[in-house]
Simulated assay, not measured.
Amino acid sequence: MLTLYGIYRSRATRNIWLLAELGASYRFQPVIQGYRLPDPAAKDAPLNTTSPAFLAISPAGAVPVLDDDGFVLSESLAINLYLARKFGGTLAPTTAQEDARMQQWALYGVSSIEGPALDISYAYARGEDKTEAGRAVIAAAAEKLQRPFKVLEAHLLREGQIVGGRFTVADINMAEMVRYAQAHAPLMDAFPAVKGWLAACQARPAFKAMWASRLAEPA
């Protein structure tokens, strides 16, 4: 039995989205980030990333974590690549070359896109786009994204999808990283292929179901 530890307001969203696309059966065990609790060590505190019970599963103390009948795996991108291979089908790599490309794009996204995109996401979530200092943070992050977004734009214009000319786990992994920058309209408008591809990804029923659950979860 698969067990996914995490919450919707975490990188577990990319795993939940994929699992829905796969139609896979799994148990979802809520684990909240310790920093979000007033006293994560309190006796009545919910299971969180600092709880001894969770640290016994994941010494890194971070969500998400997957337990597949005793095989424990952390890091959301690695989890998705594993799940795609495990279940197979069109979402998974069909050749060694596709497998390598999916790993390449996951590594490129996490090293070049996710950090600055998160800076944008956090700034908008905190309302900092309404302040001069916040707008400077957003502008600096958007500038860092110019080069990787140009790479992604050109690739999508040629290929249409991230790998194999079809929707795969690679699209889910990348879309969930690009999503963090989505609030900054000027950036997205400058890259219409990226914007259109992301909209198509987010129009899928599995994404919509995941996102509705995320919005329903307490902030």
Rank of each mutant, 00 (worst) to 15 (best):
Q161H: 15
P30W: 03
A133K: 15
I57Q: 00
V151T: 15
P205N: 08
S112Y: 12
D99F: 06
P52K: 11
A92G: 13
D171W: 03
A209L: 07
Y8N: 12
G6Q: 09
E114D: 10
V137G: 02
V151D: 12
L22D: 14
A106L: 01
P30A: 12
M102P: 14
W197H: 01
F87K: 07
C201Y: 11
I138E: 08
G6L: 08
A142F: 04
D39N: 11
P30L: 07
G109Q: 10
W105P: 09
D99C: 03
F54H: 00
K43E: 15
A181W: 01
A141D: 05
Y180L: 14
K43Y: 02
I113A: 01
A133M: 07
D99G: 13
Y124V: 06
P40G: 04
L215G: 08
Y8E: 14
Y8H: 15
K130C: 02
L37C: 08
K130V: 12
L187V: 09
H184P: 00
L152D: 00
L55R: 11
Y5I: 13
E132I: 08
Q161R: 10
L187Q: 01
S111W: 10
K43V: 15
L37W: 01
G160I: 05
S121T: 08
R101C: 13
L81V: 02
D119R: 14
K208H: 09
G109P: 15
Y82F: 12
R135E: 13
S51Q: 03
V72E: 02
R214M: 14
E217R: 00
G70T: 10
S121K: 15
G164H: 04
L107D: 11
S58R: 00
F71W: 10
G160Y: 00
A53Y: 00
Y82W: 01
P186L: 03
P192C: 05
A170T: 09
D39P: 04
